[in-house]
Computed example of a mutant assay.
Amino acid sequence: MKFIDSSTYKELNPEKLVLPFGEFYLTDKFVVAEIYDGEHVDWDKIELLFIKIAPFYKNTSKLAYISHRINDYSVNPQIWSQWEDTFDFIVASAIVIYNSTTLMNASIEKYFANKSLKRCRSLEEGINWVNNLKEFN
């Protein structure tokens, strides 16, 4: 299920950002990312994403990132440490996984992350985890 079809989407009514490689939903506390099938996420795409979302989050000092992996795509796992160093306002990330391949990839990515990165089995679990982070309470 896509985020746009969830009850949480209807409650939060987030800003939607469409980029050539995915759709992103911007809420007060977090971004939900749905990368398109077959994409490869590299540093250029991450930079473009943050350039585009910066105006929305101009006064935000804390933000979480939820990677909602409904499609099959690849990620350079080493970008996690570069991402965390460059965008220090990202306090934590969640990866929502739906199959064993995504679980294995998320486990490798978690190894490279310096900040909290949780692997979740549902979008609801990821959102609940983010909403209960100590950084937001």
Rank of each mutant, 00 (worst) to 15 (best):
residue 2 K to C: 07
residue 3 F to A: 02
residue 4 I to F: 06
residue 5 D to V: 02
residue 5 D to Y: 08
residue 6 S to A: 06
residue 6 S to Y: 02
residue 6 S to H: 07
residue 7 S to D: 09
residue 7 S to G: 03
residue 9 Y to I: 06
residue 10 K to E: 14
residue 11 E to C: 07
residue 12 L to P: 03
residue 13 N to T: 09
residue 13 N to P: 01
residue 16 K to N: 09
residue 17 L to N: 03
residue 19 L to V: 03
residue 20 P to C: 06
residue 22 G to F: 06
residue 22 G to D: 05
residue 22 G to V: 01
residue 23 E to D: 14
residue 24 F to R: 02
residue 24 F to I: 10
residue 25 Y to G: 03
residue 26 L to E: 00
residue 29 K to H: 08
residue 30 F to T: 00
residue 34 E to T: 03
residue 35 I to A: 05
residue 37 D to N: 15
residue 37 D to I: 01
residue 40 H to T: 15
residue 40 H to G: 04
residue 40 H to V: 13
residue 42 D to M: 11
residue 43 W to K: 08
residue 45 K to Q: 14
residue 45 K to D: 12
residue 45 K to Y: 03
residue 50 F to R: 02
residue 50 F to K: 05
residue 51 I to Q: 15
residue 53 I to V: 15
residue 53 I to Y: 02
residue 54 A to I: 01
residue 54 A to N: 10
residue 54 A to C: 02
residue 55 P to D: 07
residue 55 P to A: 08
residue 57 Y to I: 08
residue 59 N to S: 12
residue 60 T to G: 03
residue 61 S to W: 00
residue 62 K to R: 12
residue 62 K to D: 10
residue 64 A to Q: 02
residue 64 A to W: 01
residue 64 A to T: 02
residue 64 A to F: 02
residue 65 Y to N: 03
residue 65 Y to R: 01
residue 66 I to A: 04
residue 70 I to E: 06
residue 72 D to Y: 01
residue 73 Y to K: 01
residue 74 S to W: 03
residue 75 V to E: 10
residue 77 P to S: 03
residue 78 Q to E: 14
residue 78 Q to Y: 13
residue 80 W to M: 12
residue 80 W to V: 07
residue 81 S to N: 13
residue 81 S to A: 14
residue 81 S to V: 12
residue 81 S to M: 11
residue 83 W to E: 11
residue 83 W to Y: 15
residue 85 D to I: 02
residue 85 D to N: 13
residue 86 T to Y: 08
residue 87 F to R: 05
residue 87 F to C: 10
residue 90 I to C: 11
residue 91 V to N: 10
residue 91 V to R: 07
residue 91 V to T: 11
residue 92 A to K: 08
residue 94 A to V: 11
residue 94 A to Q: 05
residue 95 I to H: 00
residue 96 V to R: 00
residue 98 Y to V: 09
residue 98 Y to S: 13
residue 100 S to D: 15
residue 101 T to D: 12
residue 101 T to Q: 13
residue 102 T to A: 15
residue 102 T to Q: 15
residue 103 L to S: 11
residue 104 M to T: 15
residue 104 M to H: 11
residue 106 A to Q: 09
residue 108 I to M: 12
residue 109 E to D: 12
residue 109 E to W: 01
residue 110 K to H: 10
residue 110 K to P: 10
residue 111 Y to R: 13
residue 112 F to Y: 13
residue 112 F to C: 10
residue 114 N to Q: 15
residue 114 N to T: 14
residue 115 K to N: 12
residue 119 R to F: 06
residue 120 C to V: 06
residue 122 S to T: 13
residue 122 S to K: 06
residue 123 L to N: 07
residue 124 E to M: 09
residue 125 E to F: 02
residue 127 I to H: 01
residue 127 I to P: 03
residue 127 I to W: 00
residue 128 N to R: 07
residue 129 W to F: 11
residue 129 W to L: 09
residue 130 V to A: 06
residue 131 N to A: 04
residue 133 L to Q: 05
residue 137 N to Q: 13
residue 137 N to K: 12
residue 137 N to L: 09
